[in-house]
Amino acid sequence: MSKERDIDQWIDDYLLGRLDKGSEQQFRKRLEGDEAFAKLVALRKEMQEGIEAFGRKDLKETLKNIHQEVTSTPVKAKNKNSLLSLIAVVLIITFLAGLAWWWMNANKKQASSPEQLYLAYFEPYLLTDIRRSDSKEALFRLQELYNEQKYTEALPLIQGHLDSLVNQPSDWLLAAGISALELNKTGEALRYFEQITNNGDFNFKDEVHWYRALAYLKSGDPEKAGVTLQSLLEDKSADHHKEAVELMEKLNK
């Protein structure tokens, strides 16, 4: 994974104009001679341009707000009629907001059993590291099988793949755990998550906490789920922090 990250970073630095002349020449040379690499660069460029367009849209909104602020004049009620209309609108909005609040609360109460919370919050982790190539065709198919949520077929194959490796990668262990979880094999799922923790892989720390908490919910143990969520609650930058806060609030009700 770190080699791939290094390549991604190299591409980013090239696209953002941050390479020195020597590296840039080396980059261009590889770009001309390596078709697979050129495709990677093309995809990364598309992603970067999409993100830039997203940033522009965001900045445009900021500028529209500044425009309002700079050019607006205070609004005054011109007469009694407009004041009455304003009061009527406020009353209607208040009524509708109350109605929405009541409806949301009623729904929250309905979805408060551990199993229902699991269903509401579970989303599978996507495997993305394997790219199609002759040497990795079988693994790529397995990745697709898992991403398509065909867990019954995927789990034994993932287990086989893991068994063939000396160092078991965290993303495949996580995929195995999630497949087991969805097949109602909660104990097995927890064992896979435990293995990731034992590997000491920092990159998957948050994912492991999150899916372990969901596993406890699925097995009907909201107390353990709550304890497991703690580290995600304490770290605002953690993956799933927001979902963890939301879920904890619901568990506490």
Binding site: E46, M47, E49, G50, I51, E52, A53, F54, R56
Partner: peptide, 16 residues
């Protein structure tokens, strides 16, 4: 030209 958002960028923006 950056001001004109291309069709593919719009789809990526929706994914973002």
């Amino acid at each position: 030209d950056v001001i004109n958002t291309k069709e593919r960028q719009k789809v990526i923006m929706q994914l973002i």
